[in-house]
């Protein structure tokens, strides 16, 4: 049973450099249980999904990306039993044209808008409009407009969202639009969007590292989301250092009291050719590691004290390739995030 079974829309945010795109991708794979359809969206124009999954740059349109992470009891009954992950790269210009087409059937006027540079104007300069268009398309993917014939009804949508510093503004379409358009259909529609974003059908997850600055930003982000009544999901702690040493060993490594003779004999028993440089090096590495682990543990305690579910993902020494994404997806599923 997932912690977020009520949520259809999973928004993944985080400070720059914390790996939110990686987490969003892994979460999409994890949510794609047997037979389920999951849509992974990106809105920042970076083509991060394409790079992560090693496919051609994505167009404005939903594309089959890959199969979901198999369930434990999947017995290899063929591909059709696996979940499916689709991808969508949302850009504001295309979203506006699609929107106008879907709602207004503007015909000649729609073309004129484009010709007179209104589309470019609206998406580059008109403030807030860009965010509303991007989140509006995400909304459409969740709620599916009846005018969008033949579209897939997704079981879950994962949004690789703007960073923590911008996320509230991005989702707070009511506020963004409210100041500019006080009446009219745009206002009504942004109110409807807000209803979804503020409901339990949305979960806004924050990705952090166990360092002071990203943790502080996570705390601030959660407070800001709560202020706007936007539903805070879980905190994903990314790039956690390996847990290879026991607490006692870590303390000894920090204090410089690891038993040199004992470790020397242990290493020999393990078939390692022992030299003084090797032992010095290992001890030095252990000390550095232990110091960082202590700092990490402090931050982990802060994160765990936030009162929201937390999930941990390890640092992958070899980097994150497609295989590693599935591995991370497995860890998220094990911990109940999907």
């Amino acid at each position: 049973m997932s912690d977020w079974s009520e949520a259809r829309l999973h928004v993944v945010t985080g400070k720059g450099g914390t790996g939110k795109s990686t987490v969003a991708s892994a979460l999409a794979l994890a949510l794609a249980h047997r037979g389920k359809n999951v849509l992974l969206c990106e809105v920042e124009g970076r083509q991060g999904i394409a790079r992560m999954f090693d496919v051609d740059p994505l167009p404005y349109g939903e594309r089959r990306l890959t199969t979901g992470l198999p369930d434990h009891d999947d017995t290899g009954g063929g591909k059709e039993t696996l979940g499916r992950v689709h991808a969508l790269h949302i850009d504001a210009e295309s979203a506006l044209l699609e929107y106008l087409d879907m709602y207004y059937r503007l015909g000649r006027a729609g073309k004129a808008l484009d010709r007179f540079g209104v589309i470019e104007f609206a998406t580059t300069i008109a403030p807030g409009v860009r965010d509303v268009l991007l989140s509006g398309k995400v909304y459409e993917a969740v709620e599916r407009n009846s005018r969008n014939k033949g579209a897939i009804d997704y079981d879950a949508i994962v949004l690789d969202a703007p960073p923590t510093g911008r996320i509230t503004q991005f989702l707070n379409v009511g506020g963004e639009v409210g100041g500019l358009a006080k009446v009219g259909p745009i206002k009504t529609q942004s109110d409807t969007m807000m209803k979804l974003f503020q409901s339990p059908r949305t979960a806004i997850h924050l990705v952090t590292l166990l360092e002071e600055m990203p943790v502080q930003e996570t705390i601030d982000g959660i407070a800001e989301l709560r202020r706007e009544k936007l539903p805070v999901g879980g905190v994903v702690v990314n790039l956690v250092r390996p847990r290879d040493l026991s607490d006692d060993d870590l303390a000894a490594a920090r204090a410089g009291t690891l038993d040199r003779e004992q470790i020397e004999s242990e290493l020999k028993a393990g078939g390692i050719e022992v030299t003084p440089t090797l032992i010095d090096g290992l001890f030095h590495e252990a000390r550095e590691h232990a110091e960082r682990r202590a700092l990490e543990d402090e931050q982990l305690a802060v994160v765990r004290g936030l009162g929201v579910p937390t999930y941990e993902l390890p640092r992958m020494a070899g980097g994150v390739d497609l295989g590693a994404l599935y591995e991370l997806a497995g860890l998220l599923r094990e911990q109940g995030m999907a």
């Binding site: 026991s246 470790i263 242990e266 290493l267 028993a269 393990g270 290992l282 590495e285 590691h289």
Partner: peptide, 10 residues
């Protein structure tokens, strides 16, 4: 040799 193994993995 858990400690030594841990050091090696690190």
């Amino acid at each position: 040799g858990a400690t030594a193994a841990g050091l090696l993995r690190l």
